[in-house]
Design a protein around this nucleic acid. Structure first.
Lengths: 181, 181
DNA sequence: ACCTGAACACCGTTCAAGT
DNA sequence: ACCTGAACACCGTTCAAGT
């Protein structure tokens, strides 16, 4: 029995039954302990949520870069991040609520800055461009998740929206503009 | 004593002390009623949160359109929405959590579509472009709020980021690209 | 129609006590 | 060092009962 193990079981519980299922008492019974033992290992519930957020952030943060030219590589980073975020929207919401979004985006931010530098954008401008690309990506995810949850919104279109394609297009346009500035 | 009044007092409470302060018991004492009276007027807590989300969405949804040319007008819509969202980030989070984001964005979506049509973008493409612009805007807000909450992230830049200006720039670029497609 | 009081099952947390 | 049990203050919700 260790802090890591307790946090791991908590993560399993959240993934299996959602954030509402995570109560100190429920977690204790899952661990085969008395409720109060958790307080010895990880501290109070706030500390537990922080630890969870940290784990999830590390999990979602690593992305693979593909392609040859800068634009393709940058768009591939955005696409990979978007995919990771879409896979576990509830967990991302948890991270955001705990205020750990910065940690979540940090590795991607670095990867983006590296590619932008390689593309000839330098210094502060690379920081700015990373910020814009990250905003665009997280916003796209946020909206897509929301639409998936509330399918009322589906309007009468001649053909349904391909959100993957639309994201690819908009991010490509944006990236080109940021590089050619 | 009416449903509207109960919801109004609940909204005041949330704005003054945050979402955690909104408990059925606290709200009852604020109203001068017994806890159970709330159940008669608005139903259970889920119903109360739904009603709150509806109000907030209507409040944040109305934006003023300014400017002459299409790009300026569209950017002004995005800017106004961003400003509204930034003013009450906690309430926006509440709306999102309740799954009412679609309602929140509906009026803006319509306004954007109208401007895009006027700019010569037609039918489905206007829908797609509205979606992209909305995503970009909400993502920008989401990131800015997060950074404001966790100021650790401030990196060593030669000059600090002007997020208003950056948003204006990126949305302008994006809008032009969407129109000229 | 509108409101109260008592009761139930559930929280997070503290603290003394055990080994 | 690690864990338990009892206790406290707080939740949301139901339901019978009052006017």
């Amino acid at each position: 029995m260790s802090r890591d193990h307790v946090v791991g079981v908590a993560l399993d519980l959240v993934q299996a039954e959602g954030i509402d299922a995570l109560t100190m008492r429920r977690l204790a019974s899952e661990l085969g302990l008395a409720v109060t033992a958790i307080y010895w290992h990880v501290g109070d519930k706030q500390a537990l949520l922080d630890a969870l957020a940290e784990r999830i952030a590390a999990q979602v943060g690593d992305v693979e870069v593909r392609g040859d030219d800068p634009v393709t590589r940058i768009v591939s980073i955005g696409t990979a991040l978007r995919q990771n975020l879409l896979e576990q929207p509830e967990l991302v919401g948890l991270v955001h609520q705990q205020g750990h979004t910065a940690e979540l985006f940090q590795p991607v931010r670095v990867a983006l800055a590296r590619e932008l530098l390689a593309a000839g954008v330098d210094g502060d401008d690379a920081e700015l461009a990373s910020h814009v690309i990250l905003s665009h990506t997280s916003g796209s995810v946020l909206n897509d998740v929301q639409i998936a949850r509330a399918p009322v919104q589906q309007e009468a279109l001649s053909r349904p929206i391909d959100r993957d394609e639309l994201f690819d297009y908009s991010l490509t346009v944006l990236t080109k503009a940021l590089i050619d500035r």
